[in-house]
Computed example of a mutant assay.
Amino acid sequence: MSTIEIMAAKALSKSYRSFTALHPADLSIARGEILGLVGKNGAGKTTLLKLITGQALTDAGELKLFSATTAQGLRQARQRIGAIVETPCFYRDMTALQNLEYYRIQRGIPGKEAPQNALLEVGLEQTGAKKFKDFSLGMKQRLGLALALMNHPDFLVLDEPLNGLDPVGIVEIRELLLKLNREKHITMLISCHVLAELQHLATTYAFIDEGKIVKKMTAKQLEEACSPFLRLVADEEARAVVVLERQIKGISFSVQPDKSIHIFNMHGRADEIVRVLADHSISVHGLESKRSSLEDYFLTLIGGSSK
C-alpha cells in the first residue's frame, strides 16, 4: 500500500534581511502521521509552520500540500488545514462561543453549529458565560484547538500546544490529540521544544537546529536510540572491540570520543563480556548499565551537552 503525502517541502528556505531563519529544508508528512517537530526556542520551528500555513512567503524551494504546488492550489489546499501558530488572539471579554462565532464569520466557515461543535470536541461546551480572561491556561489552549478544528481539517499544524501546561493539562491535550488522530484520522504537525512532552504522542520526529532539519526518524527508531546500553571502559579499546566482535556473535557497539565502548544489545550479559576480555588479557576498568534520556539524545544530535 503506497504512502499518501499530506505535505512535502523541498529545499524550503526563509530569510529576514541578513538572518537565515530556515535553511533549505526537506520534510514530508504522510497521511495519518503525528510528526513532532523538535527544536530549541529560536531553532526555526515557527518559521517553518508559517511557510506551510501561508502566514509567511517562502524565499526558495517547493511546497506541496495535498498534491497542490501552484499558488492557487496551495490556497485551496490550506482550507483543509487547521492551525495554531504562535498565540491565537481572542477577545478577553467574550465567551468561548462568542470568540469562535467571530472567527467563523471572519473566515467564512459555513454552518452556525460549527463553534458549538468545536467546543464540544475539546471539552469546553460547559463554559457558558465565562469570559476568556477568566480561563485557565489549559482552557485557553483548548479554545485555540477548537478554533483550529472549526473548519473540519484533514491536517492540523500546532505550534507548542503543550507549552506552559501543568502535567495534568499536558495529558489532557495529548489524549485529545490522539483521539482526533485515531477517530478522525487527522494528520498532525506539532512543534515542541521539550522532546519528552511528545514521546507518548508523535509517530515520527523531525529535529531542527539553527534553521536546519538535522534528522527525521520514527518513534520506534528514537526508542531504539534511547534503549539501555552497557558502557565499557577497558584497556586497548581498539583491540577490545575486535575481540568482542569476533567472540560474541551479533554484538552491536560504538566507540565514543572518550574511548569508552557503548554496547547496545547485550543488556544482562555483562559477565560474559568481562570473561571474554579477561580470556584475552584485556583489563576492564568499568562496566555499567546506562540509558540515554530523550533530552540527552536531542542534545547529542544538535551538538549540545546536558548538565
Score class of each variant (00 low, 15 high):
Asn151Lys: 02
His152Asn: 13
Pro153Ala: 12
Pro153Lys: 03
Pro153Phe: 10
Pro153Gly: 11
Pro153Gln: 12
Asp154Phe: 01
Phe155Gln: 05
Phe155Met: 03
Phe155Asn: 09
Leu156Phe: 06
Val157Cys: 05
Val157Phe: 04
Val157Tyr: 03
Leu158Glu: 11
Leu158Asn: 07
Leu158Val: 08
Leu158Tyr: 05
Asp159Tyr: 03
Glu160Trp: 02
Glu160Phe: 05
Pro161Ala: 13
Pro161Gln: 10
Pro161His: 10
Leu162Gly: 07
Asn163Tyr: 07
Asn163Glu: 14
Asn163Phe: 07
Asn163Pro: 01
Gly164Leu: 03
Gly164Phe: 07
Leu165Phe: 09
Leu165Met: 06
Leu165Ala: 13
Asp166Cys: 03
Pro167Cys: 11
Val168Asp: 15
Val168Ser: 13
Val168Pro: 00
Val168Tyr: 08
Gly169Arg: 00
Ile170Thr: 12
Val171Ile: 12
Val171Thr: 14
Val171Arg: 05
Glu172Ser: 14
Glu172Tyr: 06
Glu172His: 11
Ile173Gln: 10
Ile173Val: 15
Arg174His: 11
Arg174Gln: 14
Glu175Cys: 02
Glu175Met: 04
Glu175Tyr: 01
Leu176Val: 10
Leu176Met: 13
Leu176Asp: 15
Leu177Ile: 10
Leu177Cys: 07
Leu177His: 06
Leu177Glu: 14
Leu177Phe: 07
Leu177Lys: 00
Leu178Ala: 11
Lys179Tyr: 08
Asn181Tyr: 04
Arg182Cys: 04
Arg182Thr: 11
Arg182Met: 04
Glu183Pro: 00
Glu183Phe: 02
Glu183Trp: 01
Glu183Gly: 05
Glu183Asn: 09
Lys184Arg: 12
Lys184Ala: 14
His185Pro: 00
His185Ser: 13
His185Ile: 01
His185Arg: 05
Ile186Tyr: 05
Met188His: 06
Met188Ile: 08
Leu189Gly: 04
Leu189Ala: 09
Leu189Thr: 08
Ser191Glu: 12
Ser191Cys: 05
Ser191Asn: 09
Ser191Tyr: 06
Cys192Val: 12
Cys192Asn: 15
His193Glu: 07
His193Gly: 08
His193Lys: 00
His193Ser: 07
Val194Glu: 15
Val194Lys: 03
Val194Gln: 14
Leu195Met: 12
Leu195Thr: 11
Ala196Arg: 04
Glu197Met: 05
Glu197Gly: 12
Glu197Ser: 10
Glu197Thr: 11
Leu198Arg: 01
Gln199Phe: 07
Gln199Leu: 07
Gln199Gly: 08
Gln199Tyr: 09
Gln199Asn: 15
His200Glu: 15
His200Met: 08
His200Tyr: 11
His200Gln: 14
His200Thr: 15
Leu201Met: 09
Leu201Trp: 02
Leu201Phe: 04
Ala202Asp: 00
Ala202Ile: 03
Thr203Cys: 07
Thr204Tyr: 07
Thr204Cys: 06
Thr204Trp: 02
Thr204His: 12
Tyr205Glu: 00
Tyr205Ile: 01
Tyr205Trp: 03
Ala206Ile: 08
Ala206Phe: 03
Phe207Ala: 09
Phe207Leu: 10
Phe207His: 04
